[in-house]
Simulated assay, not measured.
Amino acid sequence: MPTPLEGVIATLVNDTPTLINRINKGLTMKFFTTTLGMLLSLLITSKAIAQQVNGSMDCKVTGNVVISSEEGKSKRYSSIKDGSKEGDKLTFKYTIRNSGLFLSLENEFTKHIELNTIFDFKDGKLERPKSRGLIYTGTYNEVTFSEDYIRLENSFGKIFLSRYYKNDWHGIYLMISAMELTTQTMTINCRHNNDQMESGYKIYSRKL
């Protein structure tokens, strides 16, 4: 179904004889071409804006284990300092545009940011292997993305999210702190409140 803007343009084109008669009665051809050019410009702009979607999930921490090496001994904790604990609520957000990808995972109550990553596809390689999904490989990051799966790996950690039923997702977040000799493993259960995964996947598919 055409958009309202596309409908206006089609009407202008189909009613060209009528418009010419009006031009002969006083309107100038310059006005006609300027108006049509402006409408075409708006159409192109609206198409470009559509190349970005924003989605989000409401998540809950179902498990969290922190292991640290301290003076040669293994220590186990329920969370890192000021970090998320089992039972906490998180918000996972993503922005998908034709030039890159933004991912964030934030604690709703403490506002502690577990994950905040931006990918610019100009700095890496985007490809679609024979298996399902798209893979972006950058200097420091790698992302696998499909309608039902997100995998992110970089030097600081990893996150895996998978759809298991309609809008229900679950996953694992792994954080590694080499300086503090500490690792964190967090499991989360999520539900989309704004599912844009399919639309985002189509944006990237058109690039290949």
Rank of each mutant, 00 (worst) to 15 (best):
M1P: 07
M1N: 08
P2E: 14
T3Y: 15
P4F: 15
L5P: 00
L5S: 04
E6R: 01
G7I: 04
I9Y: 11
A10H: 03
A10Y: 02
T11C: 05
T11W: 02
L12S: 00
N14C: 01
D15R: 09
P17D: 14
G26V: 01
T28Y: 06
K30G: 01
F31N: 10
F31T: 07
L36E: 00
M38G: 05
S41H: 02
L42S: 06
I44G: 00
T45Q: 03
S46M: 06
A48N: 05
Q52N: 07
Q52P: 00
V53H: 10
G55T: 02
S56A: 10
G63V: 08
V65S: 10
V65D: 13
V66L: 11
V66R: 10
I67Y: 08
S69Y: 03
S69H: 02
E71N: 15
R76F: 14
Y77V: 12
S78Q: 12
S79I: 03
I80Q: 03
K81Q: 14
D82K: 09
G83H: 12
S84Q: 05
S84K: 06
E86H: 01
D88N: 11
F92W: 08
Y94L: 01
T95C: 11
I96L: 15
S99T: 15
S99N: 14
G100W: 09
L103F: 13
E106D: 05
F109L: 04
T110H: 01
T117Y: 02
I118N: 15
K122V: 07
D123K: 15
K125E: 14
R132N: 14
R132M: 10
L134T: 04
L134R: 04
I135H: 04
Y136H: 06
Y136K: 02
G138A: 02
F145Y: 14
E147C: 07
E153V: 13
N154V: 03
F160V: 13
L161R: 07
K166I: 10
N167D: 15
N167H: 11
D168C: 08
I172Y: 13
M179K: 10
M179A: 08
M179Q: 13
E180K: 09
E180A: 12
T182P: 00
T185N: 09
T187P: 07
C190A: 06
N194S: 14
D195K: 08
Q196G: 00
Q196Y: 01
E198P: 00
S199C: 00
S199H: 08
Y201G: 03
I203Y: 11
